[in-house]
């Protein structure tokens, strides 16, 4: 039983093999982490999953449906949502509006309905606002619904991005370094938040450098290096894997080839 099944995903930029032949599966309700040194191709892999980059080759199946090379908004409607490594909120909108934008693909009022603001569109809009408030509460931003997104502190912006992604009602959530640049307290809060998202029945795939977050909540970890998957397994297995240690810390002096 898998919800996401990526096989042989490759993305080349000209001669550069950013992602090469990566397999990854996720089971419903699981938290899978992707780790790896900078430039290992983790974010590129996310961009392939969400349709921002077309695949060079490979297959991606989501809920037994082939979604490789679909348009980003189609993939989001199928139930995959994401956040970005460098926060990409809609700065000139309030926090609430940001979350409401996420609900676009789950609402239906067309142009004629919205032009004359029919009772249908009004009711739908009210529902969207209520759900968005609920999500803001869920990520702990209830008091900031009316603040401009660009004025929020950095940590709040990250949470707001998660709320916005959740508003698309995903079954699979891709988080790109949700704890980047946070202090230990905030890191703890984000870890707890990810746990609560999983408890809602949402599968989470996580890119993260904070090993405390990764080992704390992941069911499985995949390690990328130079675009290839070099290891996969439970946190314990991966941490002891010599290949992983080598990728992060380099070879020991004795192992190095003589020069």
């Amino acid at each position: 039983m898998t919800i996401l099944e990526a096989t042989g995903v490759s993305k080349y930029f000209g001669g550069l093999k950013a992602v090469e032949n990566v397999d990854l599966t996720a089971r419903p309700g699981e938290i899978v982490s992707i780790i790896g040194p900078n430039g290992a191709g983790k974010t590129t892999f996310f961009n392939c999953l969400t349709g921002i980059y077309p695949l060079t080759h490979g297959r991606i199946r989501f809920k037994d449906r082939d979604i490789a090379n679909h348009k980003p908004h189609v993939i989001t409607r199928h139930g995959i949502a994401r956040t970005f490594q460098n926060v990409r909120l809609f700065g000139e909108m309030t926090a609430l509006e940001n979350v409401m934008v996420g609900a676009y693909c789950r609402t239906r009022a067309g142009i004629l309905h919205t032009l004359v603001r029919t009772p249908f569109s009004r009711r739908e809009d009210g529902g969207t606002a209520a759900r968005a408030l609920e999500l803001l509460q869920f990520v702990g931003l209830a008091g900031h619904a009316d603040s401009w997104a660009r004025n929020l502190p950095y940590g709040y912006q990250r949470r707001l991005e998660i709320a916005r992604a959740l508003a698309t009602q995903p079954e699979l959530l891709l988080l790109d370094e949700p704890a980047a640049g946070m202090n230990p307290q905030e890191v703890g809060a984000v870890t707890e938040l990810i746990g609560r998202i999983r408890d809602r029945g949402i599968t989470v795939i996580l890119i993260e450098h904070h090993m405390k977050v990764v080992t704390g909540i992941s069911d499985r970890i995949a390690v990328l290096d130079y675009g290839e998957k070099i290891a996969e397994g439970t946190p314990k297995e991966v941490c002891c894997n010599p290949k992983v240690i080598q990728a992060y810390l380099g070879k020991t002096y004795e192992d190095a080839p003589a020069t």
């Binding site: 989001t76 970005f84 809609f90 000139e92 609900a103 142009i111 919205t114 603001r117 809009d125």
Partner: peptide, 22 residues
């Protein structure tokens, strides 16, 4: 409306808007 919000979202960040299902 949802359409107006989507327009502003496109103005602010087109890639992010597409990734949010617009």
């Amino acid at each position: 409306s949802r359409i107006g919000r989507a327009w502003i979202a496109i103005r602010e960040d087109e890639t992010a808007a597409a990734a949010m299902g617009i």
